[in-house]
Design a protein around this nucleic acid. Structure first.
Lengths: 145, 145
DNA sequence: GTCAGTGCAAAGATTTTGCACTTTG
DNA sequence: CAAAGTGCAAAATCTTTGCACTGAC
């Protein structure tokens, strides 16, 4: 399993011990097709008979987020934080209000805009958060009926 | 007081009774120079000797948000919701990581982008949330020292 | 063996809710 | 006076923390 090896490497380069809990969490995130909440990760682990306490999930995500191994995001569902592997690329999210699916938008339209804003406001711009929401093709169709 | 009269009108057009609690909250929001959390509103009311229970503040904001009299936003401080008067204009926020000041950005750079995204993904795009963060001129200067 | 990491249960923080009482229209 | 709104305390939800135990290096 290549993924497992690379996860160990990621933890090591962050100076973190590679415990079975952290590796299990990383494996879940690696397989995931969209960002997951701490509780979703916890449930998925339990489903595969890997019992990890929810507080450990939170702590591991927090630590690995500090080391930039995972990324913590807050999208539309403003209550829960979501986590995903840090792929090293800045990107955004398109959230379906119908089925809650989240897809990743690779292209960021805001680089130029940040520069303009910097000039206009004299702020030192560090970053931004953008999420777009709407209805995916399937949910759109369902709504029309 | 013109504001007070217009607030009564706003509540009426939403089919809401104009209670002293709601009017007090609206007055606070009207005077505010940036979005406020429920608790900040509660504290400001208490400071002016208008005691309103925190749950009423939440309920009033929620109701008025349904009627689009106020707008609920979630910015960088991902934990707390913030509220402001609904001015009817779509806009964004620039958040200072140093002093937590929030300024409003009137220009929205994403209209074109939404159209492109719609074409690209076949999603029905409903809206988006954008917040930009960085350091305001004063905090930037303080950092350099 | 030491120190980081974990589990559990308890506490925090923010927001919501049930229910009796009050106020508005 | 009916229905909507309020206050209070209690619950719900998500997340963090204290402390004793365990496991990694």
């Amino acid at each position: 399993m290549d993924d497992k090896r690379s996860n160990v490497a990621k933890l090591e380069s962050g100076g973190l011990k590679h415990t079975k809990q952290r590796l299990a969490i990383l494996q879940i995130l690696q397989k995931a097709t969209q960002p997951l909440s701490a509780e979703q990760i916890y449930d998925m682990l339990r489903d595969q008979h890997t019992l990890i306490s929810l507080s450990t999930v939170y702590r591991a995500l927090d630590t690995m987020s500090d080391k930039e191994i995972v990324t913590k995001i807050n999208i539309i569902q403003d209550d829960k934080a979501l986590y995903e592997m840090n792929c090293g690329l800045h990107h955004h999210y398109l959230f379906c209000l119908g089925c809650n699916k989240i897809i990743t938008i690779k292209h960021c339209p805001l680089e130029e805009y940040e520069k303009a804003l910097k000039k206009e406001t004299d702020y030192e711009i560090v970053g931004h958060k953008l999420s777009v929401y709407g209805y995916c093709p399937a949910c759109k169709k369902a709504l029309d009926k």
